[in-house]
Structure formats: C-alpha cells, structure tokens
Simulated scan of single mutants.
Amino acid sequence: MRNSFDVVVIGAGVFGLAAALELRRRGRSVAVVDRFGSGHPLTSSTGRSRGIRIAYDHPFYVDLASDAIRRWRGLEAATGRKILHLTGQIDFGLPEKLAGIVSAVRGAGGAIEELGAAGLYARLPYLRLDEPKVGLFHPDAGTVLSDEAMAAMKAGALASGVLLYEPERVVAVETGGATRVVTEKRTLEAETVVVAAGPWSGPLLRDLGIEVPLAPAVAQVTFIAAPALVDLPGIGEWGGDEDGLGGVYGHPVPGIGYKLAFSSGQQGWEPEAAEWKPDLQEQTRLLGWVDRRMPDFPRTVQLTQRHPWTMTPDGDFVVDRVGSIVLACGCSGHAFKFGPALGPLVADVVEGQPANALFRLDRPSVRNRTVTASDPILR
C-alpha cells in the first residue's frame, strides 16, 4: 500500500477535510488520518447543525463567510445533499460590537439592517430586549446542516482520490528529511504535514517543539423540539451572559425546531474522555435565559449534546507553517460555517505562500497571552 504523499493531514474534521479537498484540486497527493473517524461525537466537527452568518466585525470574515456560502451551494449541487438553511439572523447586545458588525458587513458590500423594537419584533416575535431595544438583521445567515456537510465533504475527498485512514490514532510525528506520521497501524511520509486535529492539536504540536496558546473546552448545545420554528431567523447576543463577557447564539434546525447555546465553554476538555454527558445545570441556566429574552418561546428539550471546541486568545484561527508542519487549528467556536472556504487558506500555506496576518502564529494578539477553556467566542 502507498505510504508516501505530498501532504498528510492529521484530523478529518471540517478543517482537515477542507484542506484535503483543496489540495487534491491543486493536484497534490493527500492522505488524511483521524483518531476516531470523521464526525465522531467526541470531535469538534460533529452534531446536527452549526450557525452560519456574514455578520462579523472584521471584513475578512465577512468575505470568507460569503465565499463559504457559495462553496456550500456548490457542494449541494455536486452531491444532491441539503446543506444550507438560510433564514437570516438577528444580532443584539453590546453597542460597540453591533457597530463593528455594521461597518464590516457594509464595507464588504453585504446587506444588513439596523432595527428598533418594532422591526426586531416583526422579524422574531418571541424576542424581548432590555433598553436600548435595538439590533441588526442580515439575510445571509442561518444554518449549516453539519452532519450532511461533513458527509458531503468526506464523499468529495474520497471521490477525488484522498486516502482516508480512520479510526487510526497518530502516535508520533517525526521531522528531519521526509516528515513521518506514525500511527498505530502504519508510517506515512510526506513533504508537508497539516495538523488539523482540533483539541488534540496542542499536544501533537508540543511534541514537535511548537507551542500554540490553545484552550480546548467542552461546549453544550440544546435542541428545542418545535418544528414550527424552522423558518425563524438565527440569533446572536453579544455580551449578554451573566459575567458580561459571553452571550447566547441560536438557529433553526429543520426536522427539530431550534438550537440554543451559550457562547462560552463551561469546562475543560479531557483528551481521553469516552463521552460527554449533558450538563443539566447549564441547560437550566439556558432556559432561564429563554425566560428573560424569549418568554413565550417553546421549552420542550428534544436533545442536548456536548462537543469540544478550541479557543485562542484573540478568537482567530491559527493557519501557519513551522518547517514542514502546517498548523490548521484554534477554531475558537466559529470555524465550521466556513467549511470548504477554509481549504484555500491551508493550501496556500502548504504551497509556500505567507500566512494571512490574521492567522499567523506570531501575531501580537497571541504572543505572550493566555487563554482559558471558559473564554467566550469573540468573533
């Protein structure tokens, strides 16, 4: 069997599969290794749905999200799978955050409305805000059906000639000459190794002498059983959590109703955990938020799920190169929506282009700064 490739990718989550797809499109031979298997419940790229929005306070992310929507549509056309469910999104909370979002979206040519109480109520009749009762609405938002998205990306990768080894644990990465990825079953050689292993990225990189400030956390999402809600817009509250730092996000989920979650991790991640049991206290706290913000909203919980995400100090990703190792990690709770648009970011660095300043490992907003598992989503 073949054991030498242009690129070996560690991790078959959304970052790893996107990178593999783009590298194959550019003619590279690619193998992907995943510890549990793509989309496994213990990984970050799991579950029924993720939010998608162009409402960012940085123009690069606005453009990236718009590109992602185009690419997701392309995958839908290519595979016949339903991936996107776009119903728009309402954002509210910290005035400075909202102002930054409006500036960035309009600067990138996107559509966004500034609304008062009547306009917000017309878009989402359940919503009740404290003063000032203002918010935003933009139509290019909604839901990525993540299980369908992962299946489409995986099928595309396999069809393009990517070799996928799963479940198969990487036990070592060896540099010097050809770089080697040693798994429980084989040794693979490559010119470049992409580390896209989600919360496992930090330990793998540390063994290579590469220190990255990453804090894996376990996030919880709650699905409300109310199919009548599937045409409602998503929501994003900025700075509304009890400590004034976090908030709540949500979006409709076809076949279920609506998904809600806090935008901060509630506990640290354990690399050898066999499962993540629901935190009923957090669920109760979330329903308390519903009592305050959407008192007439349905309350029937159909499902609660937990999965990891990996925070960086500034909420931006890490996509950079150190020798023969390319880093693709630090998703910071908001990467999945970008899906196939992440691939070119990684492939460019693999091919020798300079890393985007926003994602460099040595950027000032990351150097000599700490991050904790409970830090909120900042972007």
Rank of each mutant, 00 (worst) to 15 (best):
R2G: 10
F5V: 02
V8N: 03
V9S: 03
A12L: 05
G13F: 07
V14E: 06
L23C: 09
R24V: 09
G27M: 13
V33K: 00
H40E: 08
H40P: 05
S44A: 15
G47Q: 10
S49N: 12
R50N: 14
R50C: 10
I52W: 02
I52S: 06
I52R: 02
R53N: 04
Y56C: 00
D57G: 15
H58S: 10
Y61S: 03
D67Q: 14
A78P: 00
Q89T: 08
K97N: 09
G119P: 05
A122D: 15
L127Y: 02
R128P: 03
D130L: 06
D130C: 01
K133W: 01
F137D: 04
H138Y: 14
A141K: 12
T143G: 09
L145C: 07
S146L: 14
E148L: 03
A155T: 10
L164K: 04
Y165W: 05
Y165P: 00
E166I: 06
V171R: 15
V173W: 01
V173P: 01
T175Y: 14
G177P: 07
T179E: 00
T179V: 12
T183G: 02
T192E: 02
G198F: 03
W200V: 00
W200I: 11
S201K: 05
G202K: 15
L204R: 05
L205Q: 06
R206L: 14
V212R: 08
L214V: 10
A217N: 08
Q220P: 01
L232N: 10
P233E: 10
I235D: 00
I235A: 03
G236P: 00
G236S: 05
E237Y: 15
E237M: 15
D241P: 09
D243F: 13
G247W: 07
Y249N: 11
H251V: 07
V253Q: 02
P254D: 12
I256W: 08
L260P: 01
W269N: 08
A274P: 00
W276N: 14
P278N: 12
P278Q: 11
P278W: 13
Q281M: 06
E282Q: 15
T284S: 15
L286W: 12
L286I: 10
L287W: 11
W289G: 02
W289L: 14
V290L: 08
R292G: 13
R292E: 05
R299K: 11
T300V: 15
T300H: 07
Q302P: 00
L303P: 07
G315E: 01
V318S: 02
V318W: 07
S324T: 10
I325P: 01
L327T: 01
A328Y: 12
C329K: 02
H334N: 05
H334A: 13
A335N: 09
A335K: 07
K337S: 06
F338K: 09
G339D: 09
G339W: 01
G343H: 14
P344F: 03
A347W: 07
D348G: 14
D348W: 03
E351C: 13
A355D: 06
N356F: 03
A357K: 04
L358T: 03
L358D: 04
D362F: 03
T370F: 11
S374Y: 14
I377T: 13
I377Y: 08
R379D: 12
